[in-house]
Every structure is written in structure tokens, then in C-alpha cells.
Nucleic acid binder design. Structure first.
Lengths: 174, 174
DNA sequence: ACGGCCGTGTCCGAAAACCGCGAGACTCAC
DNA sequence: GTGAGTCTCGCGGTTTTCGGACACGGCCGT
């Protein structure tokens, strides 16, 4: 029996230039997950992995959060900086995700640089994996990590979106 | 991150003729676990397995429950019948444990009979295993199951206690 | 340049080990 | 013969273990 009183999370669907996104917030107003609609199943799986037995109810996320997301897509690329995020995951993963938020919009890092930044320069591949399991897309900018040779390599929401996001933030690709 | 607000359970230590027992109840007053003090570690492990990230605080269990336990040990062997129990575990395990409560005090069943009772006559050994993982001793009467040949076979709290409990309930052993 | 090897953390599926059994076959005493 | 002890084997769910796969990149040989 997971837990007697499962936590209830709020699910808000928001339209963006990249398609509808799913925004999940908790009672404290912190973002627990964000993903594109077409990957709903995956998001649920990630979410369930770290908060066993949670309940989900469609509703509206806090205004501040919702507005930040919209602002970001309208061009205010720093609008997401102040948004509070709360994630599960292992220590390693959380460290990686925290490091991601330190990458400013308009810049990119290689997987190697990311690994070095968290103090495990050799855990390159592991960092890449952790990157891919990031439950809070866009806000935790896993899209700012690319291959050492400039290749985009991969993105959970599809490379097309990764490319769009980076361009949107002012990155000139190769 | 297991759950933002871990459930808090109450731990009550109660003296009995068989030694001190640990009685764990939840906010609803349902019994989550019961075991003998000398097996505290094991109980914690079982508990933790099914409610990841719970908190424990010494305190007093609901009067009704506490009284029922004391009454049972004083000779009112049916006193525990009405006590509410809430357990985790797999479907199979819960089925087994539910079947256990249907065995009245003063009677015993063999592991084979138990398996048959839940509709899996061949899952004898599995039933035995599930029996041994019962987190709520005494109230869920796993001690009423004995070998087909009358042997007591095993008991998580020690065979001595199993023998005592059965005798206490009026069973004449072999 | 190109191809292969390795390190690193985590998840996932497969496989094996584990048992609080019990029926059946076998032995040994009486 | 019987009846009690012993041994072997199959049973089925759960837990543990193990081996891959992966959003990479540096190193070492051709």
C-alpha cells in the first residue's frame, strides 16, 4: 500500500508554438513536471516513479507559473528563471538537473562539460542519461546540452523541438 | 522524492505475557503492523517495503485497539475480530492475509488448506511464504497455520510463541 | 579520419534463488 | 505389515542478482 493519503497534483494543459504542453504543479505551487502532450505516457511514468501513488486532477496552475511559461514562448527567454521546481530522482540526477538550470538561455554545453560541472568528469554517459530523464522539460533546460561536436544528438520531445528551442533562445547552430 | 508529506504512523509499545509488542497504527486508527519487540528490525523492513518514506512517532494507539489487544491476551480470544487492519503487499499476499482472518480462534489450518481456500491449491509454498511476511502478527492469525502433519513448522516470532498462542486459544496440539 | 574500447549511473527485463509445503518413495525397526 | 523417520522433487509467488542499453567523449590504434 503506497500511502494512505496520496498527494494530489494539478495538471494544466497549455498551448504553445510547439504544441500543447502538460504542466504539473503541486499544492505548494512548485512545478513537478512539464512535457509535450504527445509524450503524456512517458511523463506519467516518470512522475509515478518518483511519487508513488499520486493523484492527478485537471486544473489551473498558479498564475505566476502559467504566465512565465507563456512569456517564455513569447520571447522573454529568461521568464522561467524564477519558477520553482521540485523533482524526485536519485542524488545524481538531482545534481545534474540543478546544474542544468545554471546554463543561461542562449548558451549550450556539451555532455562532457555538464559532467565536469557536477564534479564527475568521467560520468559523461550517465549525465546524458540523467538528462534524458528530466521530468521538467524546458524549465529545466535539458535542451541546452548538445554533443561535443555540435550535434544535437537527442531530445525526449523530438530533435525538431530542441532545435526550435535553441534558436528561440538565440543560439546559432553550427 | 517519495512523497512530499510522508505519512506519520504511531508506534505503541505494549506489554504482554509473550513480551513487549510493537503496535503501529495510522491516522485512521487502522493497524498497520504488529510484532514482538525482539524483531523490531524486521518489522521496520516490512513496513518500509510497502509504505516508502513513512515517519514513525511513539505514541498511543486508539483505545479500542489497545484494549482489544490486552483483552485478547487476557483470554478473550475473539477480541481482535473487529480490529481494522490495513496492509500493503501484493494482491496475492493480501488475499492470503484476508483468508487468515477467516480462521476462527481455536482452529488451525494446514498450509495446503490455506492455499486451497484462496483458490490456488498448488501455491502451497507461496502461501507459506506470504504467511511469513504478514506484517500484522496475532491480529492476522498467521500462527493458526501449521504443517499438514501437525508440525508447527515455523513462526516469525519463534515457535515457542506460536505454541503459546495456539494453546491460549484452546487448541490441543497433537 | 575512422573504428573500437572503456568508464559511469540508472532502469529494465530475464533468470535464478529462496522458502514457515506436501505428496510419494524408501528405509528401518517393531 | 504398519508406522514413524528421511529424502527427493515439484509446486508458485516474491526478491535478488545480473547483464544489457543508453541523448557521450577521450584515448589508442590503424
Amino acid at each position: 500500500m503506497p500511502n494512505a493519503q496520496p498527494e494530489t497534483l494539478t495538471l494544466n494543459r497549455i498551448a504553445t508554438p510547439l504544441g500543447e504542453v502538460l504542466l504539473v504543479t503541486d499544492a505548494d505551487g512548485a512545478v513537478r513536471a512539464l512535457d509535450f502532450s504527445d509524450y503524456e505516457v512517458r511523463m506519467m511514468r516518470l512522475l509515478g516513479r518518483h511519487s508513488p501513488g499520486f493523484a492527478l486532477a485537471e486544473g489551473r496552475a498558479p498564475v505566476a507559473v502559467r504566465r512565465a511559461v507563456e512569456a517564455y514562448f513569447s520571447g522573454e527567454v529568461r521568464a522561467l528563471d524564477a519558477v520553482a521546481v521540485k523533482t524526485g530522482g536519485t542524488v545524481f540526477q538531482r545534481t545534474v538537473w540543478a546544474a542544468l538550470r545554471a546554463i543561461p538561455p542562449g548558451e549550450t554545453r556539451s555532455y562532457g562539460q555538464l559532467a565536469a560541472a557536477i564534479g564527475s568528469p568521467k560520468a559523461v554517459r550517465a549525465a546524458g542519461l540523467a538528462n534524458g530523464q528530466n521530468p521538467v522539460a524546458v524549465i529545466v533546460p535539458c535542451h541546452r546540452v548538445i554533443g561535443a561536436n555540435g550535434t544535437l544528438t537527442g531530445y525526449a520531445g523530438g530533435l525538431e523541438r530542441k532545435r526550435w528551442l535553441l534558436k528561440h533562445e538565440g543560439v546559432t547552430l553550427r
